[in-house]
Design a protein around this nucleic acid. Sequence first.
DNA 1: CGGATCGTTGACAGGTATCAATGCTGGTGG
DNA 2: CCACCAGCATTGATACCTGTCAACGATCCG
Lengths: 245, 245
Amino acid sequence: MQPDQIDKAWRVASKCEQCAIRSLVLFADLTKEDFDLLHYPIHELNFATGETLYNQGDKPEAIYTVRSGLVKLVSYLSDGSFRIVRILRQGDVVGLEALDNKNYLHHAVILESASFCRLPVGEIKELNDNSPHLFKQLTARWQRVISDADTWLSKLTSGFAKQRVAHLLIYLSQDCQSTQCYLPGREDMGALLAITTETASRVIAEFKRKGFIKLVSPHQAIIDQEALVAIIQGDEEDPSAQNQR
Amino acid sequence: MQPDQIDKAWRVASKCEQCAIRSLVLFADLTKEDFDLLHYPIHELNFATGETLYNQGDKPEAIYTVRSGLVKLVSYLSDGSFRIVRILRQGDVVGLEALDNKNYLHHAVILESASFCRLPVGEIKELNDNSPHLFKQLTARWQRVISDADTWLSKLTSGFAKQRVAHLLIYLSQDCQSTQCYLPGREDMGALLAITTETASRVIAEFKRKGFIKLVSPHQAIIDQEALVAIIQGDEEDPSAQNQR
DNA sequence: CGGATCGTTGACAGGTATCAATGCTGGTGG
DNA sequence: CCACCAGCATTGATACCTGTCAACGATCCG
């Protein structure tokens, strides 16, 4: 290794080790010795809402750790329609399929301006070959993706449109400290829940009228978790029972 | 290692190395030296239709490779209903979440009498710690689960009931050499596609009447792939255009 | 034979998709 | 500065699909 590269590696180590969200990321378990195995510094990238991180079919050269913001993974169907198959947030890894030498399976589009750490595939593989510390986190991430996908399947695609929207809002509020959460555009909401734009709009409009959600900005809402859970459980507020609680 | 254990290990190696479907399974890339690392022989288990491999929440001690047959992973929702989140077949691994020390996330129920290789979690972990050859296959399997889940999400939960059923049948026919495939019970079909038992029944009955599927046994059908693809693409056979092709 | 389980079918109500029109908002260019 | 436009959200009317409730047939088995 060249002296200047050693220098770079040290800067990497130093930078990653001081990372504020290190406990959340793929590199959580790495030691100083592990960081020494990296050849190049890890770059941090910023993207604005609507920008594309990569497209389906692109040849993958890196995976990305989400430092902040929100990303959707979009899959297009043969008929031109599209579905959003996942939403990724702080600590999640985007483009995991790159490790299997497969092309990217989705389009990755930024929902809320986001920053990423770019992890070149070669570095990850080499690190994993030469250190046992990455494997555990990789395993954990795969598990989480799968278990999230299962939740998605079982909750977000069953039941009435109202229930699905309620499930989605609760899901989205889970990573916010408060009851505030990202409110997707109506078209995205449809692509998430397998309903039409119009139905999504109607449900959201109704929730707003009933005070279950309050907009603080076009894409941020405060949600009434309790009311939404009631919706999920099918408690339709019966007008005749209006003042029984 | 005791002599008799070495002997066992050799039998394992011999047995696994001669496995007829070895190229499909988790141990595909292992060398003779890797097999020597195993302490106990790998057991083969047989289950009949309807039997349960494990239940959601069970403490996991093993993962299973499907040698033959069909397994469904079932997830129950709070309201008592259930969804089938995955169907596993030859070469697939059941219970991958066990590697992450999590309890089993689903109920694993046999759809078609199946045989498995039982792989104790401890053995797998040790093997993975001491040999680099398992990791590649593990990675590949996680990837496949995720990419299958995405397909599921994007295809099997969108569109009309007819289209979903058509998608399902094509999906199920992919692992059969021919155009013959497993035909799930109507309730299972509902749990797979997020439709009701009655709707599933109506669609299947219609497909049978139109000759798109032909039963060869209660749970095996020959499918007209072309007709099903037409259904998926929304080509509804217009009676007035009956003889235009 | 009777019972249990599963598949099929019917009638009807209710939810959602579809088509269409109308606000609303932010940005652009005159 | 304001008119205009593009994109998004909302709302309405209607047709269609699916869920629901119910009944009936088929098959298997004790």
